[in-house]
Computed example of a mutant assay.
Amino acid sequence: MPLGTLDRDPPAFFRQGPSALSKLAVCSAMALFLMVADARFQVMQPMRAFFGTVLYPMQWLALQPVHLVQSVSGYLVSVGSAESAKERAQAQLSLQSLRANQVEQLLLENQRLRQLLDLRARLPVDGVAAQVLYDAADPYTRKVIIDKGMLHQVALGSPVLDASGVLGQVTRLYPLVSEVTLITDRDHAVPVLNTRTGARGVAFGDTATHADAMELRFMAANADVVVGDLLTTSGVDGVYPPGLPVARVEKVERRVDAMFARIYCVPVALVAGASHVVVLAPGNASIAPRPEPQLAPAAKPSRSRDLK
């Protein structure tokens, strides 16, 4: 056989190409180059947009069962929550109707008793709505700034309430804003009344246990105070109107070697997150001033001194 007719290509078994390591290095370099080029110059953006447009109908079809299941489950949850909310609203409406009827009867009885005992009626209190702007800059006090001041007829010492109860008292006035000291401040005190027993006391701000806490101090170790008692304003200070919710007893510690019990309370008002408040006129503005003491008449000179 002449040599010219022989196949010069080696068989497939003996054919050798680039090694696997070389192919890996070339592919890695190309991938790195494409990533850098795409990050820098967005060279793959047209291709990405093209494939995204082409694949969008398939993605939409694939997501339809998921959206259907989500919509059905959301509808069922909303129906269930609406039914439960309706039941709660009806129960609350029935309770409020019962309480309204009781309140009307109690108001009538209260009016008759006051007329019978010739007691003065409760003082009318006016209020001004305000908004909490920000907390005071001093981190060692519990104070907030509201957007009402002297130009809005806010007086020094005015009580401040939120939707739940007593929040604090106006302690500094400016023309357009006011500074409110919260009831949890360590220098603030509120005369309170235990609605269960009728015992009066004084609740102080207490930041030793946690940031928003109060302490009912100077109560005897055997005082009838239990966890859950509601404390309201007693009105004896002439600042806070009586009957406003202040705090609820959280913990009572009685020790044999101590004369007073340690009573920790939690404010009813949203002390840490109140945004809208009502500023009341101070109660002492409607109370008659205290009568001035009468001076004792001068002693008459004795007759013996006149004879001299």
Rank of each mutant, 00 (worst) to 15 (best):
residue 3 L to K: 06
residue 6 L to H: 09
residue 9 D to W: 11
residue 11 P to D: 13
residue 16 Q to R: 15
residue 23 K to R: 15
residue 24 L to V: 12
residue 26 V to K: 12
residue 28 S to R: 09
residue 29 A to Q: 09
residue 31 A to E: 10
residue 34 L to C: 09
residue 39 A to N: 10
residue 43 V to D: 08
residue 44 M to H: 07
residue 45 Q to G: 05
residue 49 A to T: 14
residue 56 Y to S: 12
residue 57 P to F: 04
residue 59 Q to R: 14
residue 60 W to A: 10
residue 63 L to I: 08
residue 65 P to A: 03
residue 71 S to P: 01
residue 73 S to A: 10
residue 80 G to N: 06
residue 81 S to M: 14
residue 81 S to K: 10
residue 89 A to Y: 04
residue 90 Q to D: 13
residue 90 Q to F: 01
residue 91 A to L: 15
residue 96 Q to S: 13
residue 99 R to K: 15
residue 100 A to K: 09
residue 106 L to R: 08
residue 106 L to A: 11
residue 108 L to I: 14
residue 113 L to D: 13
residue 114 R to N: 14
residue 116 L to D: 14
residue 116 L to R: 15
residue 117 L to A: 15
residue 118 D to P: 01
residue 120 R to V: 09
residue 121 A to D: 15
residue 121 A to T: 12
residue 143 K to Q: 14
residue 152 H to G: 00
residue 153 Q to E: 14
residue 154 V to R: 02
residue 159 P to F: 00
residue 159 P to I: 00
residue 159 P to K: 04
residue 164 S to E: 14
residue 173 L to V: 00
residue 173 L to F: 02
residue 179 E to G: 07
residue 182 L to I: 05
residue 182 L to W: 02
residue 186 R to W: 02
residue 192 V to E: 05
residue 193 L to Y: 03
residue 195 T to D: 05
residue 202 V to E: 09
residue 204 F to N: 02
residue 212 D to F: 11
residue 226 V to P: 02
residue 227 V to R: 07
residue 234 S to L: 03
residue 240 Y to V: 00
residue 241 P to C: 02
residue 241 P to D: 05
residue 242 P to E: 05
residue 243 G to M: 05
residue 246 V to L: 08
residue 257 D to G: 04
residue 258 A to Q: 12
residue 263 I to S: 00
residue 264 Y to S: 08
residue 266 V to N: 10
residue 266 V to D: 02
residue 273 G to V: 08
residue 275 S to V: 14
residue 277 V to P: 03
residue 278 V to Q: 06
residue 284 N to H: 15
residue 284 N to L: 06
residue 285 A to T: 13
residue 288 A to G: 13
residue 288 A to M: 11
residue 296 A to E: 13
residue 299 A to G: 12
residue 302 S to Q: 08
residue 305 R to N: 08
residue 308 K to Q: 11
